[in-house]
Design a protein around this nucleic acid. Sequence first.
DNA 1: TTGCCTACTGCACGCCTGTGCAGTAGGCTT
DNA 2: AAGCCTACTGCACAGGCGTGCAGTAGGCAA
Lengths: 209, 209
Amino acid sequence: MLTDREKEILGLITRLTEERGFPPTLREIGEAAGISSTNGVRYFLDRLEAKGRIRRGDGLSRAIELIDGPARPSATIRLPEPVAVPLIGRVAAGYPVLSDENIEEHIMVDPSLATPGRTFALRVRGESMKDAGILEGDMVVVREQKEARSGEIVVAIVNGEATVKTYRVKRNGSVILEPANPDFEPIEISEEAPLEIRGKVIAVLRKVG
Amino acid sequence: MLTDREKEILGLITRLTEERGFPPTLREIGEAAGISSTNGVRYFLDRLEAKGRIRRGDGLSRAIELIDGPARPSATIRLPEPVAVPLIGRVAAGYPVLSDENIEEHIMVDPSLATPGRTFALRVRGESMKDAGILEGDMVVVREQKEARSGEIVVAIVNGEATVKTYRVKRNGSVILEPANPDFEPIEISEEAPLEIRGKVIAVLRKVG
DNA sequence: TTGCCTACTGCACGCCTGTGCAGTAGGCTT
DNA sequence: AAGCCTACTGCACAGGCGTGCAGTAGGCAA
């Protein structure tokens, strides 16, 4: 239906509109597409309008209305494919983390921060990892795994309670969960307080303000 | 927060934008609101921008972006629609942040963390905001704006250099950019070192490990 | 009554922006 | 070789459109 170049131009218009909140002018499209003449751009707008992908206001500036096509027209600009990560309510002992009843909603995460698959997100409670830049209310993206290497930040269950801490194996072989805040004490793992690693923190997301 | 008339004007702009797919001009708003002078309209736009309900492009026609944008007719499925945010390379003085050559790539962000529109992301250099949970290498999502309220974390240019700091207006009216790390000194704003605010940090993203 | 805030009018200026018209060049088909 | 489609360049032009500056009028608080 659309030629490659037409798709490209339509994608550009969509991107510019989304980024700025209002549609671009002919010259702005031209600059983005590498077309120096406003009429080169107009040629494409006429075409896109004839093909029903946009509507235009006569003589008005920026009067480009996008008519949503069946698919996202942005296929030509390489937008990364986001990953849907389930946001879970609680990490409880015994229960599998990724069970359906446990999933409240999904958040979309850039693929550079999370891989699809056995990944979940949860909201951090408490200030115990403050000095690692993980604050109360932050969301952490966690890759589900049962083991970890020393120094990695993990989600684990000790004493029936879920917690986010740095996993550390000491020289003498003893294991501790280390907070990143001098106000908190490390948790020593013993036979009375066994460790259940649920996953490893791979990203932190925070809404500011 | 808004006066009755301000609400009315904002509602008008929202309605016009939704009806036509692109924002109105000053004169179109005036006609709809019964204001004969473009400056009557401009008065309200200045107010709405100062109150953070819209953002405007300098000197550009129809460059009105609604902050709590018009409800886009998105087929709301169970997954949230991610927002594409351009990741920019450098924030230089005098240069518009959101120019095409400046955009390296896009990252996808959950809509709860960023609204579509004039938003960009950049990578943080330095440890000066460590205690605010913003570490070296983190990506911050920034809403482009030229002013800020005291206490907000901003991206600004002082002495030709881009920086992320807390914007603070003191009792005596003097302005400082405050780091969140005792190893760094606050930057005092003076006539020799003027302040150029580029935007406000609205989210922090970090890849761990 | 002085001042400040809200809510405008009126007008000139000048860049921004879409339009009209003329033309070019490569690729493909006939 | 002619013709048509895609994909543009270049330039002049008129009016759209935001901006600057000057001014007005009512309400309300000190």
